[in-house]
């Protein structure tokens, strides 16, 4: 069909930050579906706890608190550098972005390290009973998200140290990576309560 030009977009920018970009919405959609996954495992956990004939937790002491506390404090603390990094990305400050990414990568690796100690602290194996299976599943599921974002952070970090880092559009990727980190942190809070405190109350 014939067209007639009524609008010229010549001077529109080729990228933006946050909800202006398609990527941001994609990330949000993935957060939604993964959040749904978390909600469903949590629901399943509560359902089994409610049905359980024997006392909950079944056949085990409640998890040890130490690794979980260390992990949670570190995770919450990571919000600060993450925020700082996101702002640096929006300001396209390459130096700050590089520093922020290195900090976040290191923090992520430390967090993964601490996470390894959380599994034995659950005080039960996944194949002991359904309670154990649930704890392991929830913790593992969150670990996958954590590992994914840490992996992505590492890749972005390397990327920003190559010449690609000078491409302005790359800053939107940094910002987006930080956005997902909020989800990793946010989803941990209810899971933490469920894993460590639910049995105690």
């Amino acid at each position: 069909m014939k067209t007639r030009v009524v609008l010229d977009l010549k001077d529109h920018p080729t990228y933006g930050f946050g909800p202006r970009m398609t990527t941001w919405w994609g990330t949000l959609a993935f957060c939604a579906l993964e959040g749904m996954g978390f909600a469903l495992v949590s629901g399943s956990y509560l359902y089994l706890a409610y049905l359980s004939e024997s006392a909950w937790p079944i056949g085990a002491a409640p998890p040890d608190l130490m690794p979980g506390i260390v992990f949670s404090i570190l995770l919450l603390a990571s919000l600060l550098p993450n925020h700082w990094l996101k702002q640096a990305a929006v300001k396209k400050d390459l130096r700050r972005v590089r520093i922020g990414l290195v900090v976040m990568s290191l923090l992520g690796l430390v967090l993964l390290g601490v996470r390894v100690f959380e599994f034995p602290a659950l005080n039960i194996w996944w194949d002991t009973n359904a309670y154990g299976s649930m704890l392991w599943l929830i913790l593992a599921l969150h670990t996958v998200h954590l590992a994914t974002d840490v992996g992505d952070t590492l890749v972005v970090t390397v990327l920003m140290f190559t010449k690609e880092g000078r491409v302005p559009r790359r800053f939107t990727d940094v910002e987006d990576n930080g956005f997902y980190w909020y989800f990793v942190v946010g989803s941990w809070v209810p899971l933490y309560v469920l894993l460590y405190w639910f049995q105690r109350i």
């Binding site: 993935f30 579906l33 993964e34 599994f119 599921l141 994914t148 972005v156 990727d173 997902y180």
Partner: peptide, 24 residues
């Protein structure tokens, strides 16, 4: 268990997220 305990879904998550994120 860390690696396998979450077989399908885990691999899935690993796969899914990077793609969205990687609109880059």
């Amino acid at each position: 268990a860390f690696a396998s305990g979450v077989a399908g879904a885990l691999a899935v998550k690993r796969m899914l997220y990077p793609q969205a994120f990687a609109r880059i």
